[in-house]
């Protein structure tokens, strides 16, 4: 039997259900809610070394021009993140006063890739305290820089959201946003692949954008990683 023939039969067998097509078109005119203005509803505090706190409120809390620079950078990156134009944060963090256990938990949470979720228990296992899921939850609950350290990517083992400082709706918004935002974008003309949010990625014309699931995939078809945003770090 011919593999080509079997593949052709296999691939043509998926006819769309009629009602599904109607549903597809109903959604076309709709607009997804804009999250971008939410960036102005955070109060961002920073020291000379980086962002120290992010909480509901307004304005920036910075005692020096350098600290103000960090806070403004955080605000801009948040705006881009919420608009689906950024998948990573570059702004430095200053978590100096954070207790050791909590710092370990936050560092591990920061490693959860964009768009993925991990259970509290899994995170506890990863930091070498498999029975400390509840303590991990508490540590994340006191996360001084939510969103930037993505504690929203940690959920309960049964799949429910668990506690979130900005509320369930916000957690749903953020996870939905990450689901709809690609992580790696290649440029079809230069054959370079960048992380979404890299300055080079932003210059790629809409018609030249090619999304990849991993750097390995991109390499396998002749794309090379960007030397500025270094996608090898995440994918």
């Amino acid at each position: 039997m011919d593999l080509d023939l079997t593949l052709r039969e296999f691939f043509t067998a998926a006819a769309p259900p009629r009602h599904a097509l109607a549903r597809l078109f109903r959604g076309l005119g709709g607009r997804s809610p804009r999250l971008e203005p939410l960036a102005d509803r955070f109060r961002i505090e920073a020291s000379d070394h980086g962002v120290t706190r992010l909480r509901p409120g307004r304005g920036l809390g910075a005692a020096s021009p350098r600290a103000r620079g960090h806070a403004e950078q955080a605000r801009e990156e948040l705006r881009e993140y919420l608009a689906g134009r950024r998948t990573f944060f570059r702004v430095p963090l200053d978590l100096d006063g954070v207790p050791e256990f909590q710092a370990t938990v936050l560092a591990e949470a920061a490693r959860i890739p964009f768009g993925e979720v991990v259970a509290y228990a899994t995170l506890a296992r990863r930091i070498g305290h498999p029975r400390a899921a509840r303590a991990v939850g508490n540590a994340l609950g006191r996360n001084p820089v939510p969103v930037i350290v993505p504690c929203h990517r940690v959920v309960r083992g049964d799949g429910s959201w668990g506690h979130y400082a900005f509320g369930h709706a916000m957690k749903t918004f953020l996870l939905g946003l990450e689901r709809a935002t690609p992580l790696l974008v290649g440029c079809a003309t230069s054959r370079i692949v960048c992380r979404r949010g890299c300055a080079h990625e932003r210059r790629v014309a809409e018609g030249n954008r090619v999304v990849f699931a991993s750097l390995r995939d991109a390499r396998s078809v002749g794309y090379r990683p960007c030397r500025v945003c270094r996608p090898a770090r995440v994918a």
Binding site: P16, R23, L24, A180
Partner: peptide, 26 residues
């Protein structure tokens, strides 16, 4: 839409995800 759906269905292997993908793509 039909052809897009067929590709999405064969890649994602379930109807709900395929519909969602086509809708998002469109």
């Amino acid at each position: 839409a039909g052809r897009l759906y067929a590709v999405a269905y064969r890649l994602l292997r379930n109807r709900a995800d395929a519909e969602d993908a086509v809708q998002r793509a469109l």
